[in-house]
Amino acid sequence: MLRKGIFRRPHIALEGNTKQTKAITPDVPEELCIACPSCGKMMFSTELDENLGVCISCSHHLKLNARKRIILIADEGSFIEHDTDMTSVNHLDFPGYDKKLKSAKADSGEKEAVITGICSIGGINTAIFIMDPYFMMGSMGSVVGEKITRLFEFATINNLHVIGYCVSGGARMQEGIISLMQMAKVSGAVKLHSDKGLLYVTVLTDPTTGGVTASFAMQGDIIIAEPGALVGFAGPRVIEQTIRRKLPEGFQRAEFLLKAGFVDDIVERRRQKEYLRLLLSLHERNGENDVSL
């Protein structure tokens, strides 16, 4: 006996209609494919995650969200976040800013473009801030400025060194002049921390530009960069428009900065935890930086 409906046209599921896809091909794992922006190599996201967000073919360091970086750097379970509920306010009634904030929160799963707190790295306590590229490209507004300032003030009081991961398109124009003032505000807190003899290490990741480069990203005692990271004051497009010619290959990349003398070293992502632990241990101050975590 013929099965009912055997000559019926097969149902073709629309792409993205997961319910249908699941029903038809139950055995295909739900893995997302990601193409390396540098060499084009296709990778499963799990494969990329296992390799710390570094391309398995060309070692290009892809963007990484702040939470994943915490996992890479901090001792397991040691991170205690500060100022978790601070969010931005559209104080200038800037057109479109509220909507932009809403979609940034959805895109990143974060409330703002930086997370701050304390953690231990290889058993050594430190204050740490990590900017998130998925929240408005890490742009610096009041919240970013305030959270980082508070972190430095906390670290100054508690004799903690600070490690800062930077990624930013610059100051957040939707907050007008107040975003510019954050550059001065954070710089002041960094200076007082430095004057107390405490260490500040910045890690520049792709891309770090504008007002962040022109303030706390460049104020570290020790400045390291991830391979290939774009770091500059003006973005490459703006420079090209100004000088009306193409920029040389590798311009403003980490390797260029190392040669020009603006970073201490380039450190691959997989070596960063050990590198930071070593720096912290070389700067250990007898029994001083032991705030209880």
């Binding site: 430095s194 303030s215 403003q252």
Partner: peptide, 25 residues
């Protein structure tokens, strides 16, 4: 601040950053 190849090579961001924190104290 001027934006150009030379300015970037000689650390425009670093120069501004140093002024900010030096002026603060």
């Amino acid at each position: 601040a001027y934006c150009g190849i030379g300015a970037e090579e000689r650390g425009q961001g670093q120069a501004i950053a140093e002024n900010l924190w030096t002026m603060m104290t």
